[in-house]
Every structure is written in structure tokens, then in C-alpha cells.
Design a protein around this nucleic acid. Structure first.
Length: 198
DNA sequence: ATTTTCAAT
């Protein structure tokens, strides 16, 4: 292998931050979003490591504009200038599912960017605002795959987005009832996506 | 924390 430049050390999430924010046992007032991008070439997908990382929503500080995680992510995506002649799959792992407004913004983005396929795995369903069901359906209808994170996705994030401080990746430490809670949320989401009413 | 929702819907 030729010795290229040192790989960019992309920021990794603190272990406690991940466990606290993605757990079903908590309802933190903040949202974390991990993302990765693959280039789709024929039957293959090529991970684009320069477009992988995580972010969180902004706000809660006095005087600063509150921003949900999704508009920030949309801004980042726009800055990447992904080639419209190519096809990409963008995957997000987000600790709260998108609120109605963010779901609409994401749907609008997808309508304007047919070269981007979006998958969203949410740890929990954010149902604080009325219309959240319709928002998730709109996102789904715009072509996004919307799903609940299962053990597999939590473990994947743990391996790929979390700082283990050592070379060896510790195995993901699941919380109580992870599998059951994830399954319940998946059932609930399936009902939301199938339903035509609110 | 026996925390409960991207805080102020």
C-alpha cells in the first residue's frame, strides 16, 4: 500500500454520550445524529469515510437560535456538493425521530435531490408535537426509509461512531429491555406508516 | 435521579 496522507481522525462520540442519548431508558432534551454516506455503483456501495460523523442539535443557550439536528445535517449535506450525476445512500442514526417540521424539510430535500437515498434509523419516536405521525409518513412517502434502531444498529453505531479510546472496540453494552423496547417501537412505527389518518 | 421528548406546543 502506498503511504498516503494520514487518515483524517474523525471525531468520535463519547461513550457515555452515546449510551445516555440513544438509550430507551432516557428522554434527553437533545438529539444526536450519526451519519454516513455511501456511493452507489451498480450493485456495490462504497463507504465515503470523509462524509461520516455525528452532530447534535444546537440551542438551549441564551441568545442562540435553537436548531434541530436535521436542518444542521441538511446544511452539512448541501456543503458536500454530492455529484448529481452519481447515486448516494445516506444513513442517519438519530436519537429522536424527526419532528413534523424537520420531516417536511427532509422530504423537500429528497424531492430536490433524486440522487440521494436516505435511510433514517431512530432510537425513539419523538411524539411531542401533534402531527408527528403525518410527518413520518411524509418522509416515508418522499422515499426515505424510516425505521427504528434495533440491537444491530445500536451495536453498529457503537463500533463506528463511538470513541473507545483504545484500539480494541469494547462490545456494545445493551441496556435493560433494549430488544423488547425496540420491537415495540418498530410495531408502533409500522402502524404510523400504514395509517392514513392521524 | 424513581430523568420522560431537539425546552418554553
Amino acid at each position: 500500500m502506498a503511504a498516503g496522507p494520514a487518515p483524517e481522525a474523525r471525531p468520535l462520540m463519547n461513550k457515555q454520550t452515546f449510551l445516555h442519548n440513544f438509550s430507551h431508558l432516557n428522554c434527553p432534551r437533545k438529539t444526536y445524529l450519526c451519519y454516513e454516506v455511501e456511493l452507489l455503483v451498480g450493485e456495490n456501495s462504497i463507504p465515503l469515510d470523509e462524509f461520516a460523523g455525528f452532530l447534535r442539535n444546537q440551542g438551549a443557550a441564551m441568545g442562540l437560535e435553537h436548531r434541530h439536528a436535521e436542518p444542521i445535517f441538511l446544511e452539512w449535506m448541501a456543503s458536500w456538493n454530492l455529484d448529481k450525476e452519481l447515486r448516494y445512500r445516506v444513513t442517519c442514526f438519530i436519537s429522536w425521530s424527526p419532528c413534523p417540521d424537520c420531516a417536511d424539510e427532509l422530504a423537500e430535500f429528497l424531492r430536490a435531490n433524486g440522487h440521494v437515498y436516505l435511510r433514517i434509523f431512530a432510537a425513539r419516536i419523538y411524539d411531542r408535537f401533534s402531527g408527528y405521525e403525518a410527518g413520518l409518513r411524509a418522509l416515508n412517502a418522499a422515499g426515505a426509509e424510516v425505521a427504528i434502531m434495533t440491537f444491530q444498529e445500536f451495536e453498529y453505531c457503537w463500533k463506528n461512531f463511538v470513541d473507545h479510546q483504545q484500539d480494541e472496540v469494547e462490545s456494545f453494552p445493551p441496556w435493560d429491555n433494549l430488544v423488547v423496547r425496540s420491537e415495540e417501537l418498530s410495531q408502533r412505527l409500522a402502524g404510523i406508516l400504514q395509517n392514513q389518518e392521524d
